[in-house]
Design a protein around this nucleic acid. Sequence first.
DNA 1: GCGCCGTCTCGGTGAAACGT
DNA 2: ACGTTTCACCGAGACGGCGC
Length: 311
Amino acid sequence: MPLVVNVSRVDLNLFVVLDAIYTEGGITRASERLNLTQPAISHALARLRELVDDPLFVREGHAMVPTPAAHALIGPVRRALKEIEGSLNRLKQFDPATSTRAFRIGMRHIVESATLPALAQRLRAQAPHVQIVSAHHDRDALHGALATGELDAVIDVLLPRVQHVSYQLLAGGRMVVAVRAGHPRVGDTLDLATYLEVEHVMTSSRRSGPGLEDLALQRLGHERRVAVRCQHHWTACQLVASSDLLLTMPERYAGSANAALGNRLLPFPLATPANDLYLYWHANADAEPGNRWLREQIRNCLADHEPAESA
DNA sequence: GCGCCGTCTCGGTGAAACGT
DNA sequence: ACGTTTCACCGAGACGGCGC
């Protein structure tokens, strides 16, 4: 036997044979159990013997009696076989009521704050034992994170097409402008001229570069003045409440924070740039029951919490 | 890169030999 | 008599070489 066994060179069926001989106490009965001929089991035992450099079973009358090496192997072998069998069964079926699986969902903080509370509540209601992990994801490493199982799904805006990554539109999105109560320049409506005259706060995880609303303005030859750039919408909403800055943000995230701060929400004064949300997952997980269930819950949750059409 | 072909390896079978 | 091991053979799949 080599000093170090390379498992890639080992026929794992041999351990099924080991278990069958150990259980049945004979090669003939093991062959019947595995629906193979008796010589096939005998050959498999010979290969096992060569692998572990031990007879494993010695004949005593009409019985095959396990050696100490077989006794030492059978426990780990049975545990491993049971683990593999369990994993294969889990791939074929997913039971929310009993599953203890951890679901890892990639989302930006803004998506998390608007989506996770309701989503977690929905998931926990149907699957009380699952663990939900929300994690920041690198958009450039989307495929790797989904392919390796680091993430089960990702919720984000429209991203460049990636091979082997499936995606689906979750919810359409409009933009609104948050403005403080009593703003000296902005009344009940907001026209484009006023929008361009007043200074803005914008949120972005990047240090520079335009937002969706800037791209929409640029297409019409306009440019707004961004006085403050910050990373979190909550911070920006607080800035709006304590200054004359305007904040343009997706409607789906705008409600609760601005309401709590007393800010008003007005329609964005242009044909709204798309702020649609998409669900991403690896194509290999298309038919995987647990992943399908998760995607269904995310879709239903986003559909239930879509902002109502404004007049 | 792809398909075809020959060769090799491995695990299966049936039959016979062997051991208890 | 019964069960295990060994032998000869077969088929499937892997692999390498070759031509296109």
